[in-house]
Amino acid sequence: MSDSDDHTPTYVEAGKEFSRDMNYVPDRITRDARRPEHGPVEGGLWPVEPGRYRLVAAKACPWANRAIIVRSLLGLEDVISLGTPGPTHDKRSWTFDLDAGGRDPVLGIERLQEAYFKRFPGYERGITVPAVVDIPTGELVTNDFPWITHDLFFEWREHHREGAPDLWPADLREEMDEVMQRIFTEVNNGVYRCGFAGSQESYDAAYDRLWTAMDWLEERLSDRRYLMGDAITEADVRLFTTLARFDAVYHGHFKCNRVKLTEMPHLWGYARDLFQTPGFGDNTDFEQIKAHYYVVHTDINPSGVIPAGPDPDVWLTPHGRG
């Protein structure tokens, strides 16, 4: 099964469970193109250079949305430019249909696929977002989404705004890695495992796994403001993009319908707390989110009808978690 936010709009395979393709271009952008202190180095190394790179990230996609949020939290808007494809795509690629003339104003391309092909002619894997593109050459640098946000924090640190949050606190890093891994496998990916299940058996197993994790999160957030304590970390960004899509998409479209997010007091208060924090809600577009899932996933929603609700104003109600 290919990545659910890639170039192909057919995701459900009869009789099979969903499995995400995690093979991405593994290049890293580091200070002076040095070997990074954390994580693998399986691809090339590119130097940190303000103004050189463009982050291409659709607000509709949760994996891309997290990169947009981290870029904003760290104050890198003037250091790394942002290109935003529209919420829908076809079999070939994400497209820049939100921009004048249907072209990215910096890269001059109509399809993100062009940057992939510039570096890898005939690239056969998914044309995914987020993607970092080298502006001078127009070539893809990397689409390895977990490491993109990691490196925005560790490698671009000298360009962060004054007072930027410590998204990877050293004393919590070991526990945070465990929390983020569970969030990724059971929640971020868990909703897709439900939505693209190809059999009743695989759906039932996915549903149970998801709600076991959601109950764990509800309990964890009962005695702390954020996942790791009193301050926002990368773990919160990674969970938020799934929670922001839960009632609008995953509850119905992906059949994750035991209860709504709004019916889980601690998770719902926590989600609103983040939404009302600069960098989160102002980078969340519910109309684009709904358009992406309900239009692109034709095997789940063949009519292409986009639901009118839920009312986004509920995200602005008091959360009581200060």
Score class of each variant (00 low, 15 high):
D208A: 15
M214C: 04
L217A: 09
M214L: 15
H251V: 13
Y226F: 15
V179E: 14
D171Y: 04
Y250T: 09
H253E: 10
F184S: 09
F196H: 09
H253Y: 07
P165L: 01
M176K: 01
A164N: 03
E178Q: 12
R225G: 04
A213S: 15
Y250A: 12
R220E: 11
S202V: 15
R238N: 15
D177T: 10
A164M: 02
F184N: 10
L172T: 00
E219L: 12
E174K: 09
M228Y: 01
Q200V: 12
L221I: 01
S202W: 00
A244P: 07
H251T: 14
A197F: 04
W156P: 01
R220C: 07
A170G: 02
D236A: 04
A170D: 14
E178R: 15
V187G: 08
K255G: 07
D223P: 00
G252H: 13
T241C: 14
A244R: 11
G195I: 03
C256D: 03
G252R: 10
L210A: 09
P165R: 01
R182P: 00
G195P: 10
D177E: 11
D230W: 04
A197K: 00
W156N: 00
D215R: 13
A205R: 14
R245D: 14
P169C: 04
A205H: 06
D166F: 02
E186D: 14
A213H: 05
R157N: 03
A231W: 05
L217M: 15
G229H: 03
R173N: 08
T262F: 06
M264D: 02
Q200F: 09
E162F: 00
A235I: 05
M228T: 07
R258W: 08
D166K: 07
D171R: 02
N188H: 10
V187Y: 08
D177K: 09
Q200S: 13
D166L: 11
E219N: 06
P265E: 04
L239A: 13
D208F: 00
R157H: 09
D230K: 05
H160V: 09
F254C: 11
M214Q: 03
M180Y: 02
L243P: 14
I183W: 02
E158Q: 11
H253Q: 13
R225N: 03
R182D: 15
P265F: 14
G163I: 05
H160Y: 07
V237I: 12
E178H: 09
N257R: 05
A244V: 12
N189E: 08
C256Y: 00
D171M: 02
V249A: 08
E162C: 05
T212A: 11
A213M: 10
L210H: 08
S199A: 07
E178I: 05
L172M: 09
E219H: 04
V187D: 08
D171T: 01
L239E: 13
M180H: 02
H160A: 13
R220Y: 07
A197Q: 04
G198K: 06
A164Y: 00
E162W: 00
E158S: 13
T262P: 02
A244L: 12
H251P: 06
A164H: 01
S222K: 11
V187L: 13
N188Y: 06
E218H: 06
H160N: 07
E186I: 00
E162V: 14
E162A: 15
L217H: 03
